[in-house]
Simulated scan of single mutants.
Amino acid sequence: MKRKILIIEDEKSLVNVLQDNFKQEGFSVVVAYNGEEGIEKFYLESPQLVLLDINLPKKTGWEVCKEIRKVSTLPILMMTARDSDEDEYRGLDLGADDYITKPFNLKILTLKVKKLLKLDDVSIYKFEDFSFDAKKGEIIIENSSIELTRREIQFLEYMIKNKGIIFSREYLLNEVWGFDFDGDDRVVDTLVKRVRKKMDKYSYLLKTVRGMGYSFDESKN
């Protein structure tokens, strides 16, 4: 499964360069040329990352970032021709994950995108007939592939990287959802149920520790 990037930028020549670059890097690319179209494409296309210009027609990058952050924690990387600490601070304050100033080096931009998507991590876990590929966003059990949502990927990747450690619901909310999440910690239980269902006969790997939380443990006890 290719990672999908939504580019929201009104400069068509730059969009063409960015499209070619990210397609060569193996990404799926969706484009919007103004802020309103960008928000529409965000809801329609469910991208894994948004590359967002600040100076956009119809809705500014600030407005788009704020709108997306109301409903999603996906990575947002802001682009601007301005070179101002105030702009950088404002973008990060609104919830952007990173910032790059035009003109920029495509290699540096690509590295930033891969870092935000954690594509530089060792991402394949295997146990018996079970494997999890964080880059592709899938579980494979006996050669059958099951796709995961972004949140399921984040959660399972975090649990596997910290095998044997027991995490409380509150801790997992901070680590997987983020410190600004103000929902109920029962969302953790709901996510665990979804992931276990997809793990099928290997659901026992994701253990409930009564009164404490959850852990990823390869023992069958």
Rank of each mutant, 00 (worst) to 15 (best):
residue 42 F to I: 02
residue 46 S to C: 01
residue 46 S to V: 11
residue 47 P to Q: 11
residue 52 L to I: 04
residue 52 L to H: 09
residue 56 L to E: 08
residue 56 L to C: 05
residue 59 K to W: 01
residue 60 T to V: 03
residue 63 E to K: 03
residue 69 R to V: 08
residue 70 K to A: 01
residue 71 V to Q: 12
residue 73 T to L: 10
residue 75 P to R: 00
residue 77 L to P: 00
residue 79 M to F: 06
residue 83 D to V: 12
residue 84 S to H: 00
residue 89 Y to W: 13
residue 91 G to T: 04
residue 93 D to M: 15
residue 94 L to W: 08
residue 94 L to S: 07
residue 98 D to L: 09
residue 100 I to R: 01
residue 101 T to Q: 15
residue 101 T to V: 15
residue 102 K to E: 07
residue 103 P to N: 00
residue 104 F to E: 07
residue 106 L to W: 09
residue 109 L to Q: 00
residue 111 L to K: 14
residue 114 K to H: 02
residue 114 K to R: 11
residue 115 K to C: 04
residue 120 D to I: 13
residue 122 V to A: 14
residue 124 I to F: 11
residue 125 Y to P: 01
residue 127 F to W: 13
residue 131 S to N: 10
residue 131 S to E: 14
residue 132 F to P: 01
residue 133 D to M: 10
residue 135 K to L: 09
residue 137 G to K: 00
residue 140 I to R: 11
residue 141 I to V: 08
residue 141 I to M: 01
residue 144 S to R: 15
residue 144 S to D: 13
residue 146 I to N: 12
residue 148 L to T: 03
residue 148 L to G: 06
residue 154 Q to V: 03
residue 155 F to M: 09
residue 156 L to V: 01
residue 160 I to H: 06
residue 161 K to S: 12
residue 163 K to L: 10
residue 163 K to N: 06
